[in-house]
Design a binder for these strands. Sequence first.
DNA 1: GCATATTTGTCCGTATGTATA
DNA 2: CTATACATACGGACAAATATG
Lengths: 233, 233
Amino acid sequence: MVRNATSAAVRSDLAADRALLGRTGTAQRVSDILRERIAEGYFAPGERLSEDAICAGLSISRNTLRESFRLLSRDRLLVHELNRGVFVRRLTVADVIDLYRVRKMLECAAVREVDGPNEDIESIASAVQEGDQAASRHDWQALGTADLHFHQAIAALAGSQRVDEFMRGILAELRLVFHAMDDPRRFHERYLPRNHEILERLEDGDGVGAERLLAEYLDDAERQLVNAYAKLA
Amino acid sequence: MVRNATSAAVRSDLAADRALLGRTGTAQRVSDILRERIAEGYFAPGERLSEDAICAGLSISRNTLRESFRLLSRDRLLVHELNRGVFVRRLTVADVIDLYRVRKMLECAAVREVDGPNEDIESIASAVQEGDQAASRHDWQALGTADLHFHQAIAALAGSQRVDEFMRGILAELRLVFHAMDDPRRFHERYLPRNHEILERLEDGDGVGAERLLAEYLDDAERQLVNAYAKLA
DNA sequence: GCATATTTGTCCGTATGTATA
DNA sequence: CTATACATACGGACAAATATG
């Protein structure tokens, strides 16, 4: 009986894994855990991740953990130095500039095509709403993630699975930059009203107008972020 | 003496590895070998790659090979099915459309910014020249890769390391599509003169003119490729 | 539908090489 | 220079899933 119940619980876990197609089990699961830890800043940029320590902590083998490390290195969240181990990525100012160059290309191209009602705009609107609620709660962490959701939704206007995935990676890297800064409040707070404006243009079907606002937004954000980041490095 | 000479030779190999920063040794090397085999069509789309067979063939352990598989899966060249193994990716028509959507976004945005002399245009010119030579040799395989080099150089105009890498992946996927087709000649041959035209515009600093030609090029190529590919699937 | 062989998933132990105190 | 700690890579083992008869 008990054995059956346990077996059923395990089975449903495996079924859930199977649903997410690429799942290979442990390695993928572990990489998701580590990705989360990195995203929330538990592992700081520059920190070295010891194989033995994490193996022991998560009760997995070195081989499995190494597979997880590979996945995260591929996502640029970890850097692998030969015979030295893996470290949480520490981005340079040049990286920040590169990230914003990519964002300008993708996000601007995505909004420019908008010339009428588009159902994908709903997810942009809900990201803006998410930001409003976070701001009213004075939850600046949540405001930051709402801003990322906003721009992820912007990129999704392109309607390309690969652009979506690329953008996810870009924003995950950007999160590393935000974690290196002390005060996320002032940074994200300033841009909330501009997200509203961009949304309005899109809802009016004015893609080129939205593009202009978005380009200004990204230039300002890049300038401010580079200034703040250069002081730390 | 002999021992010293051998040691020196090995050392220079390792030094070369170290120079290419991300090198982690065997796994990376093996993934490069497999990537090459896939690119040249030795492993056909849909084919399963046996762990034992490749381990034996390359004289490496399963653990190392599995790390290589991870790397290639991350590049979308292999797909990993749980408890079934890895297969060479087989792209759908939707994938082809997605790939061209990305190309239009990136390549058009890259050329649009050109408004004057640019040293990066040299590599575009040499790719065109590479295509001319391949065509004169009637080497259609080489013509195909020259075309890919051309578009890689186009994307490089953006001046972003991440865009370069993304584009490399996009074009590697596209190679899988070309391998599924029988006659690469007619496909690539048609577009060589258009590459010349685009290059001329860029050398004249006419970015927007180049963008228009490039957009037409990509639309035509997509249409033709989708038609040919739909017949196979 | 069942029993088989094959293949993958995961883990362990170890020998070797590398970096660092 | 030595010693310690760690990463790399290998080979073997067993369970679980899949493919085959």
